[in-house]
Nucleic acid binder design. Structure first.
Lengths: 335, 335
DNA sequence: CTGTTAGCGCTTTCAA
DNA sequence: TTGAAAGCGCTAACAG
């Protein structure tokens, strides 16, 4: 089934069918109806490849998701797709592996899909600055921080990870904790881990408390399992700690479970704060103390900035969305 | 950058460049090297649209994911992508809305991507049998049950939901529970809900226990929030129940949280079993009694069947993967 | 308002 | 082993 078949069956030319299917105004109502009838009858759809082969821009916004299993990213994706439905743009989703170079992928997607904009979920522009620099179309990184790159149209919307981590650390300090362990990501990897760590350290430094990395920092992937393992490691290396700062809720929950298995109750024996504020954090027992990232706002603002850049030539921006601190039930007051 | 530009720069014809880029054997080593040098220099990639416009089959397997936020589906997706990496096929992912018609989407994908096979995650062929019937290429539905459709190449790999639900119900009965509430999906919707319900009812019937739908069945979406709400509803309508059969772990956890807020401890006051066996189920407090669906096996077997159909013309099959019952800590023995 | 036609970038025959 | 050229299905410019 091609546009040619439809044209033949309608007794008109391919150009006419194309015009009908693309809602061009210069077709008589009668012809339009005749064509649509045949199209409906066969459930005909235009071949997107041929279309894109011609097109200069496709009225599509592509969403590149890196690391499909993150709960946070999934909420963002869902929200963005919902928000885009009523818009004139259609959405495409490309799922990338944890280890792909998202900027290279974006260049390929740009070339093949000719989108009017690209949304990155879970990418780190810092790592691929050079490749990003080649990307000459409106882009926005959502949830990861990005700094401006000269000569690009790259925006970012994120939570202020540094300040949020400060906030969590301050809270633990206020509650009387000074022996604090950290369960965090690999510091060579994502910039997010680094920023959260920096915020945490800054607060401790301000309070005049030293942090012994070798003893008190356990590296983990962002998973239940690794959170649990890290908690085990931490309790061995630093048995008298009274609190743990976990860099994600998922890690925190893994840790709580392991602590329970080791006979340490949260928050009675050990206090813990998480990060992200995923829905699960308020359904867990105990409810988690955490930093809630406002995913809906992140998604909405990200999309708004992108549309601004696309439609009104706005300059790229790097924005923070306010976080909320949730006290939960997983931290005990010591003093 | 097109193949033409490359050809000009190499001083050869486009056909030659095409042959090099597609690893055809009939190119002299010298030419191949010359071309590859230029290609590398520009990071050139073929335009996939033009390629697909010509191609008959694309050595691609497309994965259609319906309802991107399900944890179970995400594990399946991750596993499939990992398993496909070393294969000669490349994987494409299409994310569908909860309310899309996946068979129609599949027809479009078939036409546009020309895949050699399609994997459905989270679709329900029962609902769109007619559209599926038009799909003349190897397909497999993973995790949802499907019955054979005449004249198609549609396979399915799933857990035996009926038997698994029987098993859970039997377990509750063995533990002395007879007043059992159900938190389940909409019975008009997915076939999975229906099968789990049927299994549950069958066990109760065998034990000679009546089930009062109006009083003991609370409908919920597969989310924490709805699970919690449903638990509230159930406790109002059926305050003396001693156990709850929840059709997913996520619902079960929502319910446990709500029960705790209502002052009812799990398992001391109310017992609960979940379904799916997501990783969280063993990190929750209490550990959840649940049916573990073996996602890795589901994914592997699904892919195997698909490859069999593609490469060896195997007939479509409808297979079950054994489930595991996990006793957890969320059910108390009454007698 | 409608028909005709030149490509979009690529693969693949056919000739050389 | 290589070059030339015919399309794949579609859009848009042009002619009528």
């Amino acid at each position: 089934m091609t546009i040619k078949d439809i044209a033949r069956e309608c007794g008109c030319a391919v150009g006419t069918v194309s015009r009908v299917l693309n809602n061009h105004p210069d077709v008589s109502e009668k012809t339009r109806e005749k064509v649509m009838a045949v199209v409906k009858k066969h459930d005909f759809i235009l071949n997107a490849n041929a279309k894109l082969l011609k097109a200069q821009d496709s009225k599509t916004i592509q969403i590149l998701v890196k690391g499909s299993s993150s709960i946070l990213l999934n909420s963002l994706l869902e929200r963005i797709q919902k928000r885009m439905e009523p818009l004139q743009y259609s959405a495409g989703v490309v799922v990338l592996d944890e280890y792909d170079n998202e900027a290279k992928a974006a260049n390929r997607v740009y070339y093949e899909q000719k989108p009017v904009g690209i949304i990155f979920l879970g990418g780190s522009p810092d790592l691929f600055e050079e490749d990003f620099a080649r990307l000459q179309l409106p882009c926005v990184v959502i949830s990861n921080e990005a700094k401006p790159i000269e000569g690009t149209l790259l925006s970012s919307v994120s939570t202020d990870n540094f300040t949020a981590a400060c906030h969590s650390a301050d809270y633990l300090l206020q509650m009387g904790h000074t022996k604090i362990g950290v369960i965090g990501g690999d510091l060579c990897g994502s910039g997010i881990t680094q920023r959260r760590y920096d915020g945490f350290l800054a607060s401790l430094a301000k309070a005049g408390i030293a942090f012994d990395f070798a003893k008190a920092y356990a590296t983990a992937k962002y998973s239940f399992e690794d959170g649990a393992k890290a908690a085990g490691t931490l309790m061995e290396r630093y048995p008298d700690l009274t609190a743990i700062f976990a860099m994600s809720d998922v890690m925190a929950i893994g840790a709580i479970r392991r602590l329970a298995d080791l006979g340490r109750r949260v928050p009675d024996d050990v206090s813990i704060v998480g990060f992200d504020g995923i829905p699960l954090s308020e359904y867990y027992q105990p409810r988690l103390a955490t930093i809630r990232q406002q995913t809906d706002l992140l998604a909405d603002e990200g999309l708004n900035i992108l549309l601004d850049t696309i439609e009104r030539n706005a300059s790229p921006r790097n924005t923070f969305i306010p976080f909320e601190f949730i006290a939960g039930e997983s931290v005990r007051r010591l003093i």
